[in-house]
Amino acid sequence: MARGLTPLGGLLLVAAVLCGRAFLTLMIQHHEGAVAMAKQERAGGAHEPARRMAADIVSGQSAEIATMRRLLR
């Protein structure tokens, strides 16, 4: 155990790390869903402003997915 860390403190630290990993894993799934929907909008949407926004979503959330995957390593 780390110096000065009580058993309860160690357990809380482990729980925090696991929660952080779970959060990142769920956010990746969430962003992947948004990217998939945005790609559909880009391919077949009739409203140009929505297609432009969809392109921004694909690019921005794809970058965030890459960052979150790096954090999970």
Rank of each mutant, 00 (worst) to 15 (best):
A2M: 12
R3N: 08
T6G: 01
P7S: 05
L8E: 03
L8C: 01
G9E: 02
G9I: 01
L11T: 05
L12K: 10
L12F: 11
L12A: 05
L12D: 02
L13R: 08
A15S: 08
A16M: 06
L18D: 01
F23P: 00
L24C: 07
T25F: 14
T25Y: 14
L26E: 05
M27R: 15
H30F: 07
H30W: 07
H31G: 00
G33E: 05
A38W: 08
K39P: 01
Q40A: 11
E41M: 13
G44N: 14
G44F: 12
G45F: 05
G45L: 03
H47I: 09
E48I: 11
P49H: 14
A50H: 15
R51N: 06
R51D: 00
R52P: 00
M53F: 15
A55W: 11
D56K: 15
D56T: 10
V58T: 04
S59I: 02
Q61L: 07
A63E: 04
A63P: 00
A63N: 05
E64I: 10
E64D: 03
E64F: 14
I65D: 01
I65A: 06
A66W: 09
A66S: 09
R70M: 12
R70N: 08
L71F: 14
L72V: 04
L72P: 00
